[in-house]
């Protein structure tokens, strides 16, 4: 009788555990709100709005890993308008008001930024032996905000450099260019590095 009582109580305990544990308690949800440009002027000739989708995709793919202790969501389409009023959003969160677009959708929000994109020219050589190149230098940063308190809890930055043009003339002549490809690759690498830093911290 005593053993049966003991067994029943243990079973009850486990039932309580399984039935009352909310999903987020096991795996908090982290949502990617999107990337925004802080760059006001650049000598790289591309559409910034179009390319800001690239790091969102890379970050989502990298973080959507069974070993990562968060469930990952991409809210970038739904929250474009809210990104425009980011400081108001932060202040609301800080004052305990959650934006309706984010209500109960996540425990942590990832805000991404393009903080630098520019082209660096370099030249060297003499007479017939000379070379010129252009390098795309790009930097991203990421802030993770607790969606319940509005407090920033994690910050990371990552940069990447890719050659966009290469010209040299030394016995052989070479003339390569591809700024769009260089920017896309640099964005992917920087976003992958951001994801790696976040995974390491999580």
């Amino acid at each position: 009788m005593k053993k049966a009582c003991f067994g029943l109580l243990v079973l009850l305990g486990w039932l309580c555990l399984v039935a009352s544990t909310p999903a987020y308690a096991a795996k908090p949800v982290v949502a990617i709100v999107g990337f925004q440009s802080r760059v006001s002027d650049t000598n790289v000739n591309i559409e910034q709005d179009e390319m800001l989708g690239i790091p969102v995709g890379v970050l989502y793919t990298e973080l959507n890993d069974p070993a990562f202790p968060f469930e990952v969501k991409d809210l970038s389409d739904a929250t474009t308008q809210h990104r425009m009023e980011e400081i108001r959003l932060f202040n609301d969160l800080g004052n305990g008001r959650i934006d309706p677009a984010l209500q109960k959708k996540a425990d942590f929000l990832i805000y991404g930024y393009l903080t630098n994109i520019s082209s660096i020219k370099a030249q060297s050589g003499a007479l017939g032996l000379k070379g010129k190149d252009k390098t795309v230098d790009l930097e991203l940063s990421m802030r993770v905000v607790d969606a319940h308190t509005g407090r920033v809890v994690f910050i990371a930055t990552a940069d990447s450099r890719r050659k966009s043009e290469l010209k040299y003339n030394a016995i052989l002549t070479r003339n390569d260019s591809g700024e769009d490809d260089a920017v896309q690759k640099a964005l992917s690498i920087a976003a992958t590095n951001l994801a790696a830093k976040f995974k390491k911290a999580a």
Binding site: T115, N116, Q123, L127
Partner: peptide, 16 residues
Amino acid sequence: AIVQTGKGMSVDEMLN
């Protein structure tokens, strides 16, 4: 003269 050297970049890049 016959030698080329150096780097060029925008003010934003330098500031970064």
